[in-house]
C-alpha cells in the first residue's frame, strides 16, 4: 500500500473518512454497552442465580445481552466492511463481545488502530 506518512493512521493504511468515523463511533458505543452488560451478567446476575437461587436478574439481563450483542455484531460488521479488515479480524471482534473484559480491549485496540489514540 502506498500510504504516506500520516500520524493519524499509525497502524493502518486505511483512511478515516467521516463514514468510517461514524461506524467507529457506533461500534465503540455498542461495544461499551455490551461489555458492561456482559460484566453484569457474569459477575452479578449469574452468581445471584447459582449461589443465591435468585434467577430474576439472569432472566432480564440474559436475553437483553443477547439482543444487544446482535446490535454489536451489526456495528462490527458495518465497520469491517468500511475499513476492509481481514476476515479473521471480524471473527475475533465478534467473539470479543462474548468474553468478559475482552470487548473493552478490542474497542481500545480498534480505536487506536483507526484514530491513533
Amino acid at each position: 500500500m502506498t500510504s504516506p506518512a500520516d500520524p493519524a493512521t499509525s497502524a493502518s493504511s486505511q483512511p478515516v473518512t467521516p463514514a468510517v468515523r461514524g461506524a467507529l463511533t457506533r461500534y465503540r458505543v455498542i461495544a461499551y454497552v455490551v461489555g458492561v452488560m456482559l460484566l453484569l451478567l457474569v459477575f452479578v446476575a449469574m452468581p445471584l442465580k447459582y449461589f443465591a437461587d435468585s434467577p430474576g436478574a439472569v432472566n432480564v439481563i440474559g436475553p437483553l445481552h443477547g439482543f444487544l450483542y446482535m446490535v454489536y455484531l451489526l456495528a462490527t460488521f458495518d465497520l469491517f466492511r468500511r475499513v476492509r479488515w481481514s476476515f479473521p479480524r471480524l471473527i475475533m471482534m465478534a467473539l470479543a463481545g462474548t468474553i468478559p473484559f475482552l470487548s473493552f480491549y478490542a474497542e481500545r485496540k480498534t480505536t487506536h488502530e483507526l484514530l491513533g489514540h
Binding site: A19, A23, D78, R81, R84, W85, S86
Partner: peptide
C-alpha cells in the same frame, strides 16, 4: 483477497 474485495462502499458513497 478478502482485504481487497470487501469493498467499503460506504466510505465512497456516504
Amino acid at each position: 483477497q478478502v482485504e481487497e474485495s470487501v469493498d467499503s462502499s460506504g466510505t465512497v458513497s456516504a
